[in-house]
Design a protein around this nucleic acid. Structure first.
Length: 488
RNA sequence: GCCGCCUUAGCUCAGUUGGUUAGAGCGCCUGAUUGUGGAUCAGGAGGUCCCCCGUUCGAGCCGGGGAGGUGGUACCA
């Protein structure tokens, strides 16, 4: 028979833009989600879990093959209908709010957490699947709903041990729109210009004043030679916008006064400033000072669907990446008011506001900050010196587990005892239990402190180390209490 | 999407004007040591030099195209 044609082996790779999470990465995230959920819950929000898949129609926005093929969502056709993985949890909420509007209380307050998927170019720290943790209030137009979201965000960061390391910035779309009215680009015919202006403002921290001014005018050529078309504003118009970005005062009252002056000629602008003032008052009354939450005119939050207050949380500590370069974390949470989202389904105006925490980015930030230095301890490993006594070893494991000590029997090939200890090292096991014929006859076990042994290895000579200074003997019936005492 | 840089062993990388059998360190496996994890010593496995086409007697190296990665930039619900 002819040689079997070599079947190409499948490549064991994670698809581009996706990643695998091991051990502590999983438990840390679960822990963080639980902490956030507890606070959301304390604020009166109800848990909601919706399906990961939605109809494209319900998600709205990007229709594959129509608007922008291959952009945005993972979508496929089923029996003539287009389905897609959710790309955020706000669109599904709008769907739920519309679908169950007769049964849900109003306002409806819910929190949701889970993975979302976006089919776009991945970047450093940017994946095509990531976790979000959202809280939204649907059916309340009160600024108190917005203020409490900001307060709750602040509570979350405090609970995560980030006190002093974050700042929550608040702005209002109506103020932005008012400023653009004053600048003479208020009408519907200036939609494109307004978009460019908003994006330019959003880039202030990265491009600086000159860069933003270039984008407000003719455009900007960046270092890579790429040209970005500007809004084409005249100098006076650009001055108005630049003045707006400089409106950040020494305190909230000063900022509001500056904004008052800038939007005096615009009704929507005045409305926006008034809303900001309400939020500031509500937060002040609860004791959330400017060290945690500030009014900042440069917050824009993309283009999206925001119609009123917008908020953004940023971590303020400096952090260095693997290569030792200083790196800044962008926003780790953001949100705002979106009064038109449910209207798509019902035709009725339903005011809503909410926030989304980017859990993975927050975790990455905390990891880089060195918050999770200590590697997670592995289980206590009971080694197999004598294959015929497996049952006795298994009983030891069972005793340890009953005492709530993480433990396991060595299940590999026991032929080479050295390999068992190497396995213990790889697992990060704190202790190894050893019992050979000799110990079994005397009713004792050897407890080897692997961490201590590793430390001693660098201090002692090979011979001294070989004498097992990190190992001690105890009676079998004392094994559990000895281990327990040492694990603290 | 646009611009730059990069791609050689599991990892980090060297590789001369284009010349025989492509190397190192680390890691891994085996043994010295079948009752002891580090260290040391001896040995071993591991390669489509990213892919395709071209130039050449001869290409890891030169030319063209493509893919992947990476850093900017654009977009971002």
């Amino acid at each position: 028979m002819a040689k079997q044609k070599k079947q190409p082996r499948p490549k064991a790779v994670t698809p581009k833009g996706f990643r695998d999470y091991f051990g502590a990465e999983v438990t840390r995230r679960a822990d963080m989600l639980a902490r956030i959920a507890r606070i959301y819950h304390r604020y009166g929000f109800d848990a909601l879990e919706t399906s990961g898949v939605e109809t494209v129609e319900a998600l709205g926005k990007f229709l594959p093959d129509v608007d922008r093929p291959n952009e945005g969502v993972f979508a496929w056709e089923e029996d003539g209908d287009w389905l897609a993985l959710r790309y955020d949890m706000t669109a599904p909420l709008a769907r739920v709010a519309a679908q169950y509007r007769n049964d849900l209380p109003s306002p409806y307050r819910r929190y949701a957490m889970g993975p979302v998927w976006r089919n776009e170019k991945p970047g450093p720290g940017r994946f095509r699947q990531f976790y979000q943790c959202d809280a939204d209030t649907v059916g309340s137009a009160s600024m108190a709903a917005d203020a409490e979201i900001c307060a709750m965000l602040s509570d979350v960061f405090e609970d995560l041990g980030l006190g002093g390391d974050y700042i929550i910035r608040v702005n209002n779309r109506k103020v932005l729109n008012g400023v653009m009215e004053v600048a003479g680009i208020g009408g519907p015919e200036h939609e494109a210009e307004r978009g460019i202006v908003l994006r330019a403002i959003d880039k202030l921290d990265r491009l600086g004043e000159d860069g933003v001014r270039a984008l407000l005018g003719e455009g900007r050529k960046d270092d890579s030679g790429d040209f970005t078309k500007g809004a084409g504003l005249g100098d006076e118009q650009a001055d108005v916008v630049m003045g707006f970005m400089g409106a950040l005062g020494s305190d909230g009252a000063a900022t509001l006064a500056n904004l008052d002056g800038l939007v005096a000629d615009s009704e929507v602008g005045r409305e926006g400033v008034d809303e900001l003032r309400q939020i500031a008052d509500l937060l002040a009354a609860q004791g959330y000072g400017p060290d945690r939450i500030v009014i900042d005119p440069s917050v824009v939050r993309g283009l999206g669907y925001y119609t009123g207050p917008v908020y953004e949380a940023e971590l303020t500590f400096e952090v260095t990446d693997e290569k030792g370069r200083p790196r800044q974390f962008g926003s780790v949470a953001g949100g705002g008011r979106y009064d038109d989202l449910v209207k798509r389904f019902t035709g009725q105006e339903v005011p809503a506001t909410g926030v989304s925490i980017g859990v993975d980015r927050l975790l990455a930030a905390l990891t880089m900050k060195g918050r999770f230095d200590d590697a997670e301890d592995g289980p206590v490993v009971v080694t197999v010196m004598d294959k015929s006594r497996l049952a006795a070893y298994q009983a030891m494991v069972s005793d340890l587990r009953k005492a709530d000590i993480r433990a396991e029997l060595y299940l590999g090939n026991p032929k080479n005892f050295g390999n068992q200890l190497k396995y213990c090292d790889k697992r990060g096991a704190p202790f190894a239990i050893i019992q050979g014929e000799d110990e079994a006859a005397r009713g004792v076990v050897q407890i080897k402190d692997l961490k201590l042994g590793a430390r001693l290895a660098s201090e002692l000579s090979h011979e001294e180390w070989r004498d097992q200074p990190a190992q001690f003997e105890c009676r079998l019936e004392d094994m559990v209490s000895e281990i327990k005492a040492r694990l603290g």
